[in-house]
């Protein structure tokens, strides 16, 4: 479903991604973990070309794009195959919750206004936000905002969903409702690539876990293998550091 090969990305002299090869099968849930600044966000941003890779190709659902074959048309086509959920501030602040979902449907996917609204309301119902349909984002809690963002991403029926630390900006008390929603998607076999610092979540929800370090995939395996018997020394110490919390 998603195939990344030899993906490299540098910002001026800073080499952030050093050749990523990754294949995500249909219905597979892959979590990406790793220390801060190793290029996890950059990887996701390259997948939908918010950031143009320096080299390497990306194929989603049979559509391939690389810096050499990039065209404006191809760019929009590939973006429409995936959808991305950011940490925060991603709901359109000048649109209601309902409009947040209908705008891409109408403008990018050719829905009529009424079809888009029916679909948006169905999704809001499913994620438990139907009563908020007419509210603006500022009036929603952080967790509700993230759920609405996931709803918007779902509405376009993406081939793969990309999550960039969807709970990192949330109050601890709001994290669970968002993780619950993502887990329900995993149960429905949505293809997902999830960057997260929620280790126990990654462990329970993923089919495969990837450990990234310094712009490469250092190690990958099943959650049990990565979390209980990591091969690399770096993986081991990273996982240890996330478990040990300093007690004040």
């Amino acid at each position: 479903m998603l195939q990344i090969s030899q993906l490299k990305k540098s910002f001026d002299s800073l080499q952030v991604l050093n050749g990523i090869d990754l294949h995500v099968k249909k219905g597979e849930v892959v979590s990406v973990i790793g220390p801060s600044g190793t290029g996890k966000s950059t990887l996701l941003r390259c997948i939908n070309y918010l950031e143009q890779p320096t080299s390497g190709s990306i194929t989603i659902d049979g559509l391939c794009i690389s810096p050499e074959t990039k065209s404006r048309k191809r760019l929009y086509e590939i973006r429409r195959k995936s959808s991305m959920i950011f940490q925060d501030h991603s709901l359109f602040e000048n649109k209601t919750v309902l409009e947040n979902i209908t705008l891409p449907l109408i403008s990018a996917y050719g829905y009529s206004k009424s079809d888009a609204e029916v679909k948006a309301m169905d999704i809001l119902q499913a994620i438990g936000l139907a009563d908020k349909y007419n509210q603006y984002p500022y009036a929603l809690s952080g967790g509700q905002q993230q759920r609405a963002g996931i709803g918007r991403a779902l509405a376009i029926e993406p081939k793969v969903m990309l999550f960039d630390e969807p709970t990192s900006a949330l109050d601890p008390s709001l994290i669970n409702e968002v993780l619950e929603l993502i887990r329900s998607l995993a149960e429905k076999h949505m293809t997902m690539l999830i960057v997260t610092h929620e280790m126990s979540f990654a462990r329970h929800v993923s089919d495969r876990v990837i450990f990234m370090n310094h712009g490469i995939i250092l190690e990958e395996g099943t959650p049990d293998q990565i979390f209980t018997s990591p091969r690399c020394h770096e993986t081991k110490s990273f996982i240890k550091s996330t478990i040990q919390r300093v007690n004040f």
């Binding site: 950011f86 359109f92 403008s107």
Partner: peptide
């Protein structure tokens, strides 16, 4: 907020 633009592009706009 720049994220507003990114979110829009990521939605296919």
């Amino acid at each position: 907020h720049p994220r507003q633009v990114e979110a829009g592009l990521a939605c296919g706009l």
